[in-house]
Nucleic acid binder design. Structure first.
Lengths: 246, 246
DNA sequence: GAGTGGTCTAGACCACCAA
DNA sequence: TGGTGGTCTAGACCACTCA
């Protein structure tokens, strides 16, 4: 599959974008695994019959999207949720004082159900498709902090169990990656403030109607395919959600 | 001031980073104004005695930081908060149904006070420095939605009045830019859920202890100098805060 | 058609890393 | 020392905009 340098416009696509697509296809096909190095820029340039600079620009963009990671002198690597420090990449909740903390994870509910309405739509599933539904309590340094409600399609995650979630100590994305070869690339979050209802206040050990930060998240794998819906209810008296605007 | 191509390392700095600094200095000095075009890449390459590709890389990064804006065929422009569509660049709150809405702005309080404790620290001011303090109510499509508490140093904003804030219909950053030549480049936000107290519930017209999304924001101008502290309390039954994670 | 940003090349050389 | 990513160049050509 050789990229074509199509000139004199009608529907012009830069070469480096075509390279980007080819690289992404290799990633999806599993040619290179998470944490591994991909071939050097020179090798890829030779393979695709383009200059090193063009490969470089393609990799630059994939690196900006956190799909690849450059390491000077060592190579370019496939991003993973498995490494220390990169774990919990999507967790924006930090303590007011910036302390490091112990994270624990307790399953509250685990069941197989059918996708309905909004959630089916957000996961791009037909209503009635089988889904796995889990509720868990996250504990920060011994204190209950987040009540998570997670829904994933049963098909791609065939064979998942409550135990598998427990084992990785709450790092779901790491588990998805190693157990199901599903890599989450990006996520969209919607935040609001809500009042704790009876069930939630009991589980989190807080008064009824306490204010909670509600974080609804849809995570996407390659090709912008939604693969997980999640609703986190967070106690935010000692913690807050950090965000940088540019 | 010619950039030096320093080779054989000790404390190596890429040429394009030096160019980036020079461009930023020109922006601070007011050589080019918001909304205006900067010189072409060729011109800048000639001025700085480097190749076009090197200037390009410097501009690329400034464009990624939303400090410059590229427009193919037209030129590269200094970013501004004044344009339609770019206005409210930092407002992440959107309606659940994505409707366009009318925004109104009503001043509740406007006074000159002294910076204290945490706020002085976050604005990088000595305790006791004069600051302007404003509270205002933002109304979306006729419904009270956000109660803003804003604090800015009095010095750089000498001559500010409640009227000036009202006039621009709530677009503070646009006003800062045109009236005080202060351009906000980026901001950090910390979100939590809180319960409405007596004053807040009265002003927003909601029951006492209703859950509110609290958005604390510090905005920075060139050189990472903090210039505004803001606390927004938002009703989030019909709206939510959107965020994209990569 | 002239001017601007955008793409692509081929090649040189540098900084960083590991063996 | 050799391989990798990172920088820089000089030049060609393309796509887009506007007069």
């Amino acid at each position: 599959m050789t990229p074509t340098k199509q000139h004199t416009s009608p529907s012009f696509r830069p070469l480096y974008e075509q390279i980007k697509v080819l690289l992404t296809q290799s990633l999806i096909a599993g040619e290179w695994h998470p944490g591994e190095a991909i071939p050097s820029e020179h090798e890829l340039a030779a393979r695709f019959k383009v200059s090193q600079g063009t490969v470089r620009k393609a990799i630059d963009e994939l690196a900006a999207e956190n799909i690849l990671i450059r390491r000077q002198g060592k190579g370019t690597f496939v991003a993973t949720h498995n490494e220390e420090g990169i774990k919990l990449r999507f967790l924006r909740l930090t303590a007011a004082d910036g302390q490091k903390e112990l994270l624990e994870n307790q399953m509250v509910d685990f069941s197989k159900t059918k996708a309905q309405g909004d959630i089916a739509r957000m996961l791009d599933l037909k209503a009635g498709t089988s889904v796995i539904e889990a509720k868990r309590l996250l504990t920060f340094s011994g204190r209950p902090m987040i009540l998570d409600h997670i829904i994933i399609p049963a098909g791609p995650f065939k064979g998942i169990t409550a135990t598998k979630i427990q084992e990785k100590n709450g790092s779901m994305y790491s588990m998805y990656e190693t157990e199901f070869k599903i890599r989450m690339i990006r996520a969209e979050e919607r935040l609001k403030a809500v009042a704790a209802d009876e069930e939630v206040s009991r589980l989190l050990g807080i008064p009824l109607h306490s204010p909670l930060l509600s974080i609804e998240r849809v995570s996407y794998t390659y090709g912008d395919v939604p693969m997980e819906w999640r609703l986190g209810l967070c106690i935010t008296d000692t913690h807050h959600y950090m965000n940088e605007l540019e």
